Simulated assay, not measured.
Amino acid sequence: MHEARVIWQSSGDFAANRYTRGHLWRFDGGAEVKASASPSVVPVPLSDPAAVDPEEAFLASISSCHMLWFLDFSRQAGFEPTTYEDRATGALVSDGGRMWIPRVDLNIRVTWAEAPDADTHKALHDKAHHACFIANSVRSEIVVNLLENTP
């Protein structure tokens, strides 16, 4: 069982829709993260641009899950990544009045102690994508873009 606590306290004029969207995410291991509605959805100062918004967290959870599986499958295959960076992107769109993120792009750059060939590198990402719990839990299309495969 996994758990995340979301904690919000009223501040501002709630009835007039001028209340803070800032809140706290508290995780079972003790980590706390400042969270808020996105400033693109709720203007500052009612949102906090320095906090993580749900859309960013959605992208980060997909990216992180993919990376963790990729690293494990790379290890199992005898390859050693030395750095891994992903700039995950996605955009909210309206679909019949419902907002959602239909596509997530993982824009991944990996460096290696000794790089596998391009087909093996791609296969490791494909295997990671299919193993990722988060990717298997969402209806968004997830596209893996390999930006670089350097030694």
Rank of each mutant, 00 (worst) to 15 (best):
residue 1 M to N: 08
residue 3 E to A: 09
residue 3 E to W: 03
residue 4 A to L: 15
residue 5 R to Q: 14
residue 5 R to V: 05
residue 6 V to Y: 01
residue 8 W to K: 04
residue 9 Q to K: 15
residue 9 Q to C: 07
residue 10 S to T: 08
residue 11 S to D: 09
residue 13 D to M: 05
residue 16 A to E: 07
residue 17 N to K: 11
residue 19 Y to S: 08
residue 20 T to Q: 02
residue 20 T to G: 04
residue 22 G to S: 13
residue 22 G to T: 11
residue 23 H to K: 11
residue 23 H to V: 13
residue 25 W to M: 10
residue 29 G to V: 06
residue 30 G to R: 14
residue 30 G to F: 10
residue 35 A to F: 00
residue 35 A to M: 06
residue 36 S to M: 02
residue 39 P to D: 04
residue 40 S to W: 07
residue 40 S to A: 15
residue 43 P to G: 06
residue 46 L to E: 05
residue 50 A to R: 10
residue 51 A to L: 06
residue 51 A to K: 03
residue 52 V to P: 00
residue 54 P to V: 09
residue 55 E to S: 10
residue 55 E to Q: 15
residue 56 E to L: 04
residue 58 F to Y: 13
residue 60 A to V: 13
residue 61 S to A: 14
residue 63 S to W: 02
residue 63 S to I: 03
residue 64 S to C: 12
residue 64 S to D: 05
residue 66 H to C: 03
residue 66 H to F: 13
residue 66 H to V: 02
residue 68 L to S: 10
residue 68 L to G: 04
residue 69 W to T: 02
residue 70 F to V: 02
residue 70 F to G: 00
residue 75 R to G: 13
residue 76 Q to N: 14
residue 77 A to N: 11
residue 81 P to A: 15
residue 83 T to M: 12
residue 83 T to R: 15
residue 84 Y to V: 01
residue 84 Y to E: 01
residue 84 Y to R: 01
residue 85 E to G: 13
residue 86 D to H: 04
residue 91 A to T: 14
residue 92 L to F: 13
residue 93 V to L: 12
residue 94 S to D: 15
residue 95 D to M: 11
residue 101 I to C: 14
residue 104 V to P: 00
residue 105 D to Q: 13
residue 106 L to E: 01
residue 108 I to T: 01
residue 109 R to C: 10
residue 110 V to N: 00
residue 111 T to K: 13
residue 116 P to D: 12
residue 116 P to C: 12
residue 116 P to V: 09
residue 116 P to H: 13
residue 119 D to V: 14
residue 121 H to C: 14
residue 121 H to S: 06
residue 122 K to G: 03
residue 122 K to E: 15
residue 126 D to N: 11
residue 127 K to S: 12
residue 128 A to S: 15
residue 129 H to G: 04
residue 129 H to T: 06
residue 129 H to V: 06
residue 131 A to Y: 10
residue 132 C to K: 01
residue 135 A to Q: 05
residue 146 L to K: 02
residue 148 E to M: 08
residue 148 E to Q: 11
residue 149 N to H: 08
